[in-house]
Simulated assay, not measured.
Amino acid sequence: MTKDAVFIYSDELLSYRFSKNHPFNQFRLTLTLDLLKEIGAISNDDIISPRIASDEELRLIHDPAYIEAVKKAGLGMLAEDIAENYGLGTEDTPIFTGMHEASALLVGGTLTAVDHVMTDKSKHAVHLGGGLHHGFRGKASGFCIYNDSSVAIKYLQEKYHARVLYIDTDAHHGDGVQWSFYDDESVCTYSIHETGRYLFPGTGNVNEWGNGKGYGFSFNIPLDAFTEDESWLECYKESVWEVANYFKPDIILTQNGADAHYYDPLTHLSATINIYKEIPKIAHELAHQYCDGKWIAVGGGGYDIWRVVPRAWSHIWLEMINFPSVSGELPPTWVNNWKSKAPIPIATTWEDPNDMYKPIPRKQEITEKNRKNLERVLHFIQQQKNTTKK
């Protein structure tokens, strides 16, 4: 019998940890899973342990020399100058013991999700430990050592011959995945993110359409700093449906960074938890419209782990299993269990406070700038459709 969804998790995923003070903290997985358990939305039968990706699987995307460098770095055997050439030992991506094994487990978790969905064991699968979208073929970048989404997409192509639509709603541009498939017509990448004018990695311009055979299969919606819910959702809803209709995928892989939220310390957008209710709803509808329900969700960014990430990511699982709508107070047991351990006051309600931030004076200007980028994408899709008809 096919399950609605499986949840890929084990405590070993927490071993992907650069340092005590590094902003990338997989403890958010523990907080999210505990919240789901407290509301009775998940049981042990729903949880599947990730496997470790093999070197052969990692080589679907990553250079063998880079994989060997990561292994040596995790053993303390990589010279500093060589490490820097591979993006290792930097402020963003420090070296830690066992980094290859921890990183390969994150990739293997996404591959576990792929196999469950593609062999009809479940319609959907979520692996919140994944979503490391900045990793490149031969270089670590932006907290990402191996790029699990890129490996999973290549795996989907080679093992299952699938056309993949990759949807990235992280506040940072999904550069590593985009460049992995920039000249590939069987993969469509879509990223909605804060403009790179002020934010890492600085890419993701609206005119990055793809190259060669892949031209017309890369889409970006860069949003102005301080973008709020209404403009974010307008740009997302109007564009992602058009992209899916144009590409008609066999499976959808969504990257669900939760760092577009106003509280996130690393970005400059002003979204609330409301967008994180809508994002999985749309993915779910798209999957059933175009892919017989095949939908894999991975995590990504999200650096306010006490107030934002557990609530945002819970909505993905709740949508996958068609759980009744949640609102009001968070479970008191969850709040009481974690509030003494948090360095800041934690969230106590599913919704954000109405007065979370002061009104933004440039709201109309921001909305208009975002709409122009939206219109460029919609116009480009129509052009591509017209060209195909000829």
Rank of each mutant, 00 (worst) to 15 (best):
D4C: 07
Y9R: 02
E12T: 12
F18N: 04
F18P: 04
S19H: 10
K20M: 07
P23C: 11
P23E: 05
F24N: 02
F24I: 09
F24D: 00
F24P: 00
T30S: 09
T30N: 05
K37R: 15
K37E: 11
I39L: 14
S43E: 12
N44D: 15
I48G: 01
S49M: 06
P50I: 03
L60D: 06
I61W: 10
D63W: 12
K71W: 03
G76Y: 08
G76V: 10
I82M: 13
N85D: 14
N85E: 15
G87N: 12
T93M: 07
F96L: 05
M99A: 02
E101V: 04
A102V: 04
A102L: 05
A102S: 14
L106H: 08
G108W: 02
G109I: 00
D115N: 15
V117Q: 01
M118H: 07
M118F: 11
D120Y: 06
D120L: 07
S122R: 06
S122V: 09
A125H: 10
H127A: 14
L128H: 00
G129N: 01
A140V: 02
G142L: 06
Y146P: 08
S150W: 07
Q157L: 05
E158W: 02
V164G: 04
D170Q: 09
D170F: 06
H172M: 14
H173M: 14
D183K: 15
S186W: 09
S191V: 06
S191W: 03
I192N: 01
E194I: 12
L199D: 00
G202M: 12
G202F: 11
G202D: 04
W209Q: 09
W209I: 13
G216V: 07
I221F: 03
I221P: 02
L223E: 03
E230P: 04
W232G: 02
V240I: 15
W241G: 07
E242F: 07
N245F: 06
K248E: 12
D250L: 11
D250V: 10
D250C: 11
L253A: 08
T254I: 07
T254L: 09
Q255F: 08
A258C: 15
H261E: 12
Y262K: 13
P265I: 11
T272W: 08
N274L: 10
I279K: 05
A283P: 02
A283K: 02
E285W: 04
E285Q: 14
L286A: 02
L286R: 00
Y290E: 09
G293M: 10
K294I: 01
K294M: 07
A297R: 03
A297F: 11
G299Y: 00
G302C: 04
V308Q: 12
P310W: 12
A312P: 04
H315G: 07
I316Q: 05
I321K: 12
N322I: 03
V326G: 01
L330G: 02
P331H: 08
P331I: 08
P332A: 10
T333R: 14
W334P: 01
S340D: 12
P343I: 08
T349M: 15
W350N: 09
D352E: 15
D352T: 14
D352A: 14
M356I: 15
E365K: 13
T367V: 06
T367K: 12
R371T: 10
L374M: 13
I381F: 08
I381V: 11
Q382E: 15
